[in-house]
Each structure stands twice: as structure tokens, then as C-alpha cells.
Design a protein around this nucleic acid. Structure first.
Lengths: 212, 212
DNA sequence: CCCGCTATCGGGAATGTCCCCGAGGCGCGC
DNA sequence: GCGCGCCTCGGGGACATTCCCGATAGCGGG
């Protein structure tokens, strides 16, 4: 197989040339850009195997590059390279379609290895980061005790769950073995506590928090 | 740090003793079980660092072990060990809470390494399998043009989107610059075409398909 | 030209939802 | 014991949703 073609996107010029120098021999750097719009245009033109992209950039960040190119060029793989190891950043980046996420503390040899593995379709993460994605995927709510949810009583949470799933009051009442009136009471409490004004918004609230 | 304590779950006795023999020195095998119920009971008792679990077993499979133990013992990590490398199996297993998934073709040294990495909180996958999880996580929906959605007119889809976001008819009407009555008509059509019976189920339908 | 599809509205009625008022029982801590 | 929060219910009213019935208008194909 020929050498991997790689495109670099980073708004820090110095880092860009550093990476380019380190990668020089091992892969074929076909281009680089330091802003989002230029990156999108050049990537469309050169169609590299792998795009090494910084997550934090002006004008939409690396996420916009991944989203736009991913939609039109599904064969291009993305490896995110970031200073941040925050779960939100990792998850958000994977969600838009990156196949890997490594921090900038990575060494040159490991970076080359990561690029090659991403090209082969593998997923590559700095050691601790993979767990974030799996936690998000599996639900992993236990450590994320929502303070909004905390103030609801157990019964209210039960009712909320069913309402959010699209059940009518009558069905909730039958499922829980209580009267429709009691369901109304619980829903009213939930709406008041969550500062909402209708069961429709309630369904959306729950869906946003993946409680269903 | 002391040696990792590991519990084995597999319905094939021969494989079980094989794994036990191979792991013998490197980790501390604190027990093994060849059916789901026995496994759950013994794991609750011995609380190992890592549970090495076969995915395909009678009485619920490894998934049930992971789900039940995971709910009561969040510190216990699971490494799935399976003959299958099918995306459905991998995704389903990760979804219930496993932190890694390797196929039974793995060698002893790599298996030990995988167990230790899982204990540290890393996620471990056989090379090609990680991509499955990321694909599922990123949505990977674009090629899946929903036939149910296909039969809706553009205007109906527009109304559906807003309804699913928790808007009241009145708000939808204002947003689209039409009367509430027209919104009603569209909603009626959508409900009929999708075989649903209320706007609440509609919200759930849309949320299931990530249209919001 | 007419037919079908789509989008736009209306009246009216049944039902569901939301909120206001009130009430009693139960458990828990001070 | 007494208060307080939780869960349970009811009446009644305002409003929203759903489904009937009907109508008009544009637009494209046979």
C-alpha cells in the first residue's frame, strides 16, 4: 500500500509546522490549513486518507470541518488532535464523525501510528479518553446526577418517564395502578419544579437528557 | 498495586479452564461460572476488578450479567470475550456497559494486557471492532432514508419537526405563518400515515429516529 | 379538461391536558 | 405529639388536542 496521505488543520501555525516536520518521513502530508473554510475547500480538492484536525478553532471549530467533509466524502477519516481531554469535547467530536481523538501530548511515533490505524478504519484514543465515549454510549448516568432531576420525588420521576415516552395520563394511571387525578398532580409538580409549562416540553426535556 | 482480580463467565467448560490456565500467573482468577445465574451470584460475593464474560450464553447471555452487576456494582469492569465479531453483538454489548470487547482469537499475552487496561478504565477492542461502536454512536444514519418518513409531504415533515420539539399547535402555526386549523390537518395526516394516535407518541417516534 | 395530490381553512364535538381549589393517610424527625 | 413532605384522590374550569364534517385554491399528469 502507498503511503498515507494526510491533511493538517490547526489554527496555530507553529504547531502546524511542527507536526509537518515530525510526520515528514512517515506519511505524505498533502496539505495544511489554519482556518476552517480554507480547510474545507482544500480537503475537497485533495481528498486525503486522513485529516488531522484540531478541535478548538474559530468559525465552528474542527467539528464543522468533520461534519461538512464527512457528508460529502465518507471515505476521508478524521483524527482529532486537541489540547483538551474533557469528556464533552471528546464525545462531541466523536459524535460528528471523528474516528479517533488524541491529545497534543502524544509523541511523534505514536501520532504516526495513530494516523495509520485510523486510515485502516480503527478507532484510536489516548488511553483514558475511550472510556468517555463508552460511558456516553452506554448511558452512564450514575456519575451525572442531574440536579434538576434530583429535586423530583421517586414517584414523580416514574411518572415523568412514562409521560416522556408518549403515554397518555390514562395509560400512566393504569400502569402505575393509581388514578388519573394523581397522575395529574405528579405532572403538575414536575412541571413546576422543572419550570416547564406543558407535557410536550416535558417530553423534550427528558429526551434531551436521554432519560428515555 | 496488587494483582488484578478476575472472574470468568463462559458456558464452555473447556474454554473456561483454558483461559484460567493461560491467565494463571498474570492475574488473580477469583472464580468462574458457566451459567448466568451462578455468575451473578458469585460475582456479587467476590467483587472482582474485572469480569471476563462470554457474550453468547443461555438465559440472557453475557448482557444480563453485565446489566445486573453493573447496576449494583459500578466499580466492576467488564471485558466481553466472544467468537462473534458482528457489529450488532459489539454494539449491544457496549450498550449494556462493557468496557471492552475482544474476540476469542486473541492471544494470551494480549488478553492479559486487555484485562489490565480495562481494569485501569481504558476501553479495549480488537482492531476492527472499535469502528463499529463509533459508527453507531455518530449516528451513521445518512444512508438510512426512512421509508416511513418518505411518505410524508414536505410540509408535513416541517410540522412534525416542530411538534416533536414540544411546540404547541399555536406556536407551530405562528412559526410557519399558517392557521392552527391547518396545523391540525397536517398533524392528523402525519398521525394517520405513521399509524400513531397522539402527538405525544409522535414526539417519541421522532426522538427514536433522532429527527430532533 | 378533469382528476388527484397538496396546502389552506372553517364548524362542531369528544376527549385530553393543565391548573385551581380542597382533602386524608402515612412516615419521619424534632 | 406535631409539623412536614410525599402520595393519594376529587370537583370544576380553561384550554389544547384529535377527529368528524365540509370547503377553496394551485399544480401537474393523463
Amino acid at each position: 500500500m502507498s503511503r498515507a496521505t494526510v491533511f493538517l488543520v490547526d489554527d496555530h501555525q507553529l504547531f502546524l509546522s511542527g507536526v509537518r516536520a515530525e510526520l515528514g518521513d512517515a506519511v505524505d502530508v498533502v496539505g495544511a490549513a489554519s482556518d476552517v473554510d480554507a480547510a474545507i475547500e482544500m480537503i475537497r480538492e485533495r481528498v486525503p486518507d486522513v485529516v488531522l484536525v484540531d478541535v478548538h478553532m474559530p468559525a465552528g471549530g474542527g467539528a464543522r470541518v468533520i461534519r461538512e467533509i464527512g457528508a460529502s466524502h465518507p471515505d476521508v477519516r478524521f483524527l482529532a488532535l486537541s489540547v483538551s481531554d474533557a469528556p464533552e469535547d471528546v464525545i462531541a467530536t466523536i459524535r460528528v464523525g471523528a474516528r479517533g481523538y488524541v491529545t497534543k501530548t502524544i509523541g511523534p511515533a505514536d501520532l504516526v501510528d495513530a494516523i495509520l490505524r485510523v486510515r485502516e478504519g480503527d478507532a484510536v484514543f489516548s488511553p483514558r479518553l475511550a472510556g468517555f465515549v463508552l460511558d456516553a454510549f452506554a448511558g452512564a448516568a450514575p456519575p451525572a446526577a442531574d440536579p434538576e432531576l434530583e429535586q423530583l420525588t421517586p414517584r414523580e420521576r416514574e411518572v415523568l418517564r412514562l409521560i416522556a415516552r408518549g403515554y397518555a395520563y390514562k395509560e400512566v394511571a393504569r400502569d402505575l395502578g393509581i388514578s388519573v387525578k394523581t397522575v395529574e398532580t405528579h405532572v403538575s409538580s414536575v412541571l413546576r419544579k422543572l419550570q416547564l409549562s406543558s407535557r410536550h416540553q416535558l417530553a423534550r426535556w427528558a429526551s434531551d437528557r436521554r432519560l428515555i
